[in-house]
Every structure is written in C-alpha cells, then in structure tokens.
Simulated scan of single mutants.
Amino acid sequence: MRGYVDTDWGQLHYRHSGPTAAAARDVVVLLHESPRSSIVYQPVLDRLGEKAAVYAFDTPGFGSSDSAPAGAVLADYARIFVQALDALGVESFVPVGMKTGSSLATAIAATVRGTGRVERMVLYGLSEPSTRDSEHWAQNWAPELEVTADGAIFGHLWRKNVGIYGIECPGQLAQCVAETVVNLDRYNSIYPAVFRGHQQTWDDNLALIADGVAVTVLEPTEAQMTPDVPIEFVHVPGTKVVKMPVNGQFAVRAPDAFVEAVLDAALAARA
C-alpha cells in the first residue's frame, strides 16, 4: 500500500506493509539513501510486513514527497518525520536507515530521545567525523549537473555509481541514474545537511547508546566516496555490527541478509 501524510513541509509519500501501527506490536520505519526513494525497499516490504508494521518514506525532496525548505538541517528533517509518524499513529518504532537515511534515523531517534519511543535502531556503517572532510563533501559531493545535448549527464551518473557499487547489478545502476535525472532540481538537496551534521550525528549516536538504545550497524564489504577515497568504518562500543555480503543497496542486492538483520534487531525485545 502507498499513501501520503500531511506535514508542515507538505506531503510525505510512504509505502506500507503489514498491519497498521495501531494494530502492530512492532513498527519498522525505513529511510532510504539519497538520491533514491522508498522504492529501494520494495523487494523486502512484504517479508518485513509479515512480522511488523513497516513504513518506508520518501525523504523530503526525493521520490514523491514534497521538498524541504532551503537550508534545512537534520533536526528539521527529523521534526517532519516525527510529525508524519504521529499523524500515522506510530508510537514506539525502530528506525532503519541506509547512508543519508542512517543520518536521518539517528536525528529522528535524537528528537524523541527520553520518551521511550526508540529503543532499538538499525544504521549503516559508522565512521568518525572530520570537520574539514565534512565541509568539503557538503560543497562537492553533489554539484549542480548540466543537461547537454550529447546526453553526457547519463554517462557521468553511470560512472559515478559504478565507482560506488560496481557493475554486478546494472539494473539498479540504471534505476539510480533514472531517479537522479528525473529529480534533477532536488537530487542534491539533503547532502549539505547530512555532511555538515556528521559531528552532531556522531554525538547523538553516542548519547543514544549511552541511554541504552540497542544499535545494530550494517557494514558493507567496502565503501568509498570516490575511487581513491575509501570510507573507514569504526566499531563503536555498545553496538552490534552485522557484516553484509555486498557493498551497498542492501535491501535490493542482499534482501535475505537485510531482512534477517532488521528483524533480529526489531524483534529483539521479544527474546
């Protein structure tokens, strides 16, 4: 099922599987990486929905959701997501985020910190912040893209995503390029907030862990910003690290491992 929920920023689009939030014992909230949309979770929605109520949102500015205002920071995004969850009747929930979605998951958990609404969460591999690097990538990771008569934009985006994910899943590469091009005026909207918020995200994670929030970290086989700039992951004490069999887009490329890890985390309180 798909739907929309009203917020102060307009409508957020979501995909839903399983029971309603009111009827469910467990609620999982899926937050996608950018510049994708909630469609990346389509392969796992039904399986997750057998065990929990599942809501996969399009981040503001992506997919079919309305845009975020210029200059919005992570805390602003988090407030809008909490507003949407409140409107859907979601009380306690497990945020699950990949890449930029992981930063959003932390920001959402920090927003409701101390209320008991988030006791477990699932994040993408953790890396220590660097103020210099964060500002560099905030300015340079997703520059404005020019559309020219020779179609060079398609080759540029294809090469960029091959550099990140390899060539083993060309269908997903094509879909990523397509989602970027169709959303060209908004595709880079969230990156400044995520990169400039890296230190705050790190601090929030440490605070949440200290509070007793159970954090599962899904770590890829490898990751890189560019072909010559790898991402170095760290194991934060108090977290459970699950090694994934692929280097990204877990729900599509390794759905069995992803579903198992998410359900292990989401249903842990039942054990």
Rank of each mutant, 00 (worst) to 15 (best):
H156K: 15
P143L: 10
P143Q: 10
E135D: 15
W137D: 02
L145I: 15
G125K: 04
E144S: 12
I164R: 15
Q139D: 15
E146R: 09
E135G: 08
S130C: 07
T148H: 01
L157P: 03
T115V: 00
L157I: 07
G114W: 08
G114R: 01
I153M: 11
V162P: 12
M121V: 08
G166K: 09
A152L: 00
R159G: 13
N161T: 05
W137T: 03
N161K: 08
M121R: 10
W158T: 10
R117T: 06
H136I: 01
L126N: 08
S130K: 03
I164K: 14
D150L: 07
G114I: 02
A142W: 10
E144C: 01
D133Y: 02
N140E: 08
K160V: 04
A142P: 00
E144K: 12
E119H: 11
G151F: 04
V162L: 13
E135K: 10
Y165P: 06
F154Y: 01
F154K: 05
W141C: 10
N140F: 01
S130A: 06
V162T: 10
P143H: 09
W158F: 01
E119P: 07
L123T: 12
H156N: 11
S130P: 15
T115E: 05
A142Y: 13
S130N: 14
D150E: 12
H156E: 14
A149T: 08
Q139I: 01
G166Q: 05
N140A: 04
G125T: 01
G155E: 11
R132L: 12
G155L: 02
T131G: 04
D133V: 05
E135Y: 15
P129Y: 09
Q139L: 12
V147C: 03
W137I: 02
E119V: 09
A149C: 03
E146C: 00
D133Q: 14
V122K: 07
A138E: 12
P143W: 00
S127Q: 02
G116C: 04
Y124A: 07
G114L: 00
S134H: 10
D133A: 10
S134I: 08
E144N: 03
A138W: 12
Y165D: 10
D150W: 09
D150G: 07
V147R: 14
W158G: 02
P129L: 04
